[in-house]
Amino acid sequence: MTAPLTELADVIRSKNTGPYELTLDIIFTEREQYDLVKRERAINRALIADLYHLPPDDVGEPIFYDPAKAVKVNLRRPLASGSVGDTDVYGAQQHGPLLTMVLPTP
């Protein structure tokens, strides 16, 4: 079985990691769901690269943080924060592609 990420996580957000990187954060509601995603590596570089139309080299390895039931993924920004053409200086509007993600459920 699968379910949309929006039904499985309390927090889905993006933010600046610095002028050249963005961080994506997902904090799951249930421990069992988090453990399944971590065990199966259901969130991985290839999936994020596909969602964001990026080369895999622009996506960091997911970081799983057990105490918070959270996954963090860093992305290389296509433009430096605040440079000409940047549409999101704070990186707070870049989580949209995550909202389309569907994950296996326990």
Score class of each variant (00 low, 15 high):
T2G: 00
T2C: 00
P4H: 07
P4K: 04
L5Y: 10
T6E: 02
L8M: 02
L8W: 03
D10M: 13
V11C: 14
V11Y: 13
I12D: 04
I12C: 13
I12V: 09
R13L: 08
K15D: 06
T17K: 06
G18L: 07
P19D: 09
Y20E: 09
E21P: 12
L22T: 14
L22V: 12
T23A: 08
L24V: 02
L24S: 00
D25Q: 05
D25V: 10
I27S: 06
F28L: 04
T29H: 09
R31H: 14
Y34F: 12
D35K: 08
L36R: 05
V37I: 05
K38A: 01
K38E: 00
R39M: 02
R41H: 13
R41G: 13
R41L: 09
A42T: 03
A42Q: 03
I43L: 01
L47H: 14
I48Y: 04
I48L: 08
I48K: 02
Y52T: 09
Y52F: 14
L54A: 07
L54H: 13
P55Q: 06
V59N: 01
P62R: 06
F64W: 09
F64M: 00
F64D: 08
Y65N: 15
D66G: 10
P67H: 13
K69A: 15
K69R: 11
K72R: 14
V73L: 11
L75T: 01
R76L: 13
R76Y: 08
R77H: 13
P78S: 08
L79C: 12
A80D: 06
S81W: 12
S81F: 12
S83D: 11
V84A: 12
V84W: 05
G85I: 07
G85A: 13
D86Y: 03
D86V: 15
D86H: 03
D88E: 10
Y90G: 12
A92F: 10
Q93E: 07
Q93K: 04
Q94C: 11
G96T: 10
G96N: 11
G96R: 12
G96Q: 07
G96D: 14
G96K: 06
P97C: 05
L98K: 05
L99G: 08
M101K: 15
M101T: 15
V102M: 11
V102R: 06
P104I: 00
P106L: 00
